[in-house]
Design a protein around this nucleic acid. Sequence first.
DNA 1: TGTTGAGCCGACCGATCGTTCGGTTACGCT
DNA 2: AGCGTAACCGAACGATCGGTCGGCTCAACA
Lengths: 196, 196
Amino acid sequence: MAGSPITRTTYTVDSLLAVTVEVFNTRGYDGTSMEDLSRAAGISKSSIYHHVRGKEELLRLAVGRALDGLFAILDEPPAVQGRPVERLEHVVRRTTEVLLAELPYVTLLLRVRGNTEAEIWALERRRDFDHRVADLVRAAVAEGELRADVEPRLATRLLFGMINSIVEWYRPGAGPEAVDGIPDAVVRLAFAGLLA
Amino acid sequence: MAGSPITRTTYTVDSLLAVTVEVFNTRGYDGTSMEDLSRAAGISKSSIYHHVRGKEELLRLAVGRALDGLFAILDEPPAVQGRPVERLEHVVRRTTEVLLAELPYVTLLLRVRGNTEAEIWALERRRDFDHRVADLVRAAVAEGELRADVEPRLATRLLFGMINSIVEWYRPGAGPEAVDGIPDAVVRLAFAGLLA
DNA sequence: TGTTGAGCCGACCGATCGTTCGGTTACGCT
DNA sequence: AGCGTAACCGAACGATCGGTCGGCTCAACA
């Protein structure tokens, strides 16, 4: 009932967004001009305005997609039932997986600083996500499952700082097997540390 | 032989740089106009060009300062002698301390993406730093002091991703005692993990 | 006290910014 | 075949960009 089964040469909002996010991530949002986008998309600058209201809407759509993926994790069954430490491990592993699956969108999300209205909205949703994870860490500490000599809020920040830093260096390419090792490594280092 | 001992109301390159870096960090480098800088510094736009060649030189000076602080760590005695795992722990702790001490400059450094010449130069120096730390991790693994089931390069990236993420949330204010806890927490989580 | 230059200024430059607008093309539907 | 409109275009808009220029001010010094 949707798109034609034949060749598709025209842009949808989604396919335009995919091109846009790549440019945003390499040039930076402020460093990207609408002409940069038009050149990357292969259509004229003014044609972009046929699909979206403007530059900031492209940003809002992109970070919204990343946030939707991350928040969906918190509603997955293993994230809402069981021992807190196991729920936390699930969230940690799945967050890493979603970050890798939606890499360009999450990358853009993590670079938002809050200068425009869309960015402030994204920061608020991110903070909400962080708070819900911090609650999980607190619960695990209360159960005696996690060390109590590091503040839960601080531990949460460092933990997700580690996960989020993946966007700084990971580039897909080799194959799907390269991805699989990363969530495991994250969970191991996060819970058991570097020491042998 | 240097500056007059009396009141100083005029700008030096350093004091101008301090103002500049704050603006760069809140607005972003591309999002900061020279008029933004002139407004924050309280002098006219053209006066800035009396102190520096232009916008990019301000960026180069700022990230250079951050890099100098980080590289100095690798030359400290505890970083060059002793068991690899102890040398690594020293580098981890000191990197966290330098990051906190030079917070605005390191923050700016970590946001560089490599679009201008100054940014490419900064990225190259960062990569050099990372490689030297990764060598340390490899040495510790070879000695059997660190777990061997996570690739040294990956472990290094995640470890320093955790440290570097501090710039995303830490804001000085409360007092010096708030800072002291962070390097300890980083070392504990990095080497021993979250588990109780 | 006359001179010098560091420090600063307003006015202005060409280029580029995000956006708008009127108009053209070509495909889907009847 | 003919119509409607999604998709696209070139040209231009005012605003703002980073940077330049000639000149002003005033403290330091000979």
